[in-house]
């Protein structure tokens, strides 16, 4: 009989690699074992541990939407040992994946509301899962606005999908790049995400704001949202802390008494304000 091992990854084949930006790639992964594919399900907001045997494991969200069946995707920037090794892989290569771990974006509770997505840089991937999840259930929501910024035009990820969102009449997309990051033919905005957000000034009435970005962006975005009238219960974010196990044992991702892996990664601003600033 096969023994269960909480640390055992699923074997996944890299079906497709997309170059998103300098050093940023998206992998589309398929389960090699059909039974695994059938048993697996996840919900938007959850994450996993991706591994290269011999190099180790790395934590990313699932960047695809649960409404897109048959595969999962992850998007990563080459930065450390494992992501550098991942970046050297080709389509057809095998990696490990275990998950899904963590809580979810409660999109069922957002029915009938406007959604405002605010993302910065490489933090669009976790947001992309929930954006596509909501777009695939478009009739459940009212206005959908996406504010996305990156350091430079080249650093914007999912360029083809940004185009798709821009062209959709039922999505309002605002893209921006940091001052100096624009190109001569850049048609989006120039400025940091919090500044652009206050210019766009979306209404807080019946609206849920979902924010994900580097700590500095988050820090300056929350006050803007507050000024726009968003209550803390209607502001969601997803945290990232260094992780190893993914299920509350290895001890490093805690923020106060909560584990980002087990009790998060999705938190409301109300919950966040009750925690010490250890993220």
């Amino acid at each position: 009989m096969e023994q269960s091992n909480i640390y055992a990854p699923y074997k996944m084949k890299i079906e497709k690699i997309t170059e998103e930006a300098p050093l940023v790639k998206t992998f589309r992964l398929k389960f090699m074992n059909e039974q695994d594919a059938e048993n697996f399900s996840f919900r938007t907001g959850q994450f996993g541990e991706y591994s290269i045997y011999g190099e180790g494991e790395v934590t990313f969200c699932v960047a695809s939407a649960p409404t897109r069946k048959g595969y999962i995707e992850c998007t990563f920037r080459q930065a450390g040992r494992v992501t550098k090794a991942l970046a050297n892989l080709d389509e057809g290569d095998i990696i490990g994946f275990r998950g899904p771990y963590g809580n979810i974006f409660p999109i069922d509770e957002w029915k009938g509301k406007n959604l405002l997505f605010i993302a910065g840089g490489i933090a669009l991937p976790p947001m992309r899962s929930v954006i596509w999840n909501c777009l695939d259930l478009r009739e459940n929501f009212k206005d959908i606005t996406i504010v996305y910024g990156a350091r430079s035009v080249a650093d914007l990820v999912y360029k083809h999908e940004l185009k798709e969102w821009e062209d959709r009449p039922d999505v309002k997309l605002v893209t921006t790049v940091d001052p100096g990051g624009e190109t001569p033919d850049w048609k989006g905005k120039v400025g940091f995400v919090p500044t652009v957000l206050s210019e766009v000034a979306p209404s807080s009435a019946n609206t849920i704001a979902i924010v994900c970005g580097p700590p500095i962006m988050i820090k300056f975005t929350f006050p803007v949202l507050e000024k726009l009238g968003f209550t803390d219960d209607n502001v969601f974010t997803t945290l990232e802390n260094r992780m190893k196990c993914g299920f509350g044992k290895c001890g490093r991702c805690n923020v106060g008494k909560v584990f980002v892996c087990k009790d998060g990664p999705v938190f409301t601003l109300t919950q966040l304000k009750q925690l010490p600033p250890e993220y």
């Binding site: 045997y53 011999g54 190893k244 196990c245 044992k249 290895c250 001890g251 490093r252």
Partner: peptide, 14 residues
Amino acid sequence: GCFDIQDETKGKDG
């Protein structure tokens, strides 16, 4: 009980 997870390889085995 805090722990780390690390891979170790020798040739094709790990």
